[in-house]
């Protein structure tokens, strides 16, 4: 069983590489954020697999829950940011800056 777990973990990691390519070259910023989101969910899966390899899933599952929850928070914040800044472009620009970093 350990063999299958190791193989699936390595396969997961290898399949993350194209998504990392999308993070690097993604034409728009939202492309990158979607790719980061996908990698985040897969990292939660990978944490469970690593925990099974260490025979210690009871501990690693807590990391995975925290990771999955905070990952959603990040992508939601990014979506809100892009949703707000652009349509409000003309109006906010009167106070000097158009977007806060």
């Amino acid at each position: 069983m350990d063999f299958i777990l190791i193989c699936s973990g390595i396969a997961l990691f290898l399949m993350m590489l194209p998504i990392m390519y999308r993070i690097v070259v993604g034409p728009t910023a939202i492309d990158r954020i979607v790719a980061v989101n996908v990698i985040g969910t897969k990292t939660a899966v990978l944490l469970i697999i690593i925990g099974a390899l260490f025979h210690n899933v009871a501990m690693f599952v807590d990391f995975a829950i925290a990771y999955a929850a905070l990952n959603f928070l990040g992508s939601l914040a990014a979506a809100r940011y892009f949703n707000r800044t652009r349509p409000a472009y003309g109006q906010v620009s009167q106070e000097g800056g158009d977007a806060d970093e």
């Binding site: 349509p87 109006q91 009167q94």
Partner: peptide, 9 residues
């Protein structure tokens, strides 16, 4: 008051 009431967010 200087902030417009567009309030997208």
């Amino acid at each position: 008051e200087s902030i417009p009431k567009n309030q997208v967010g």
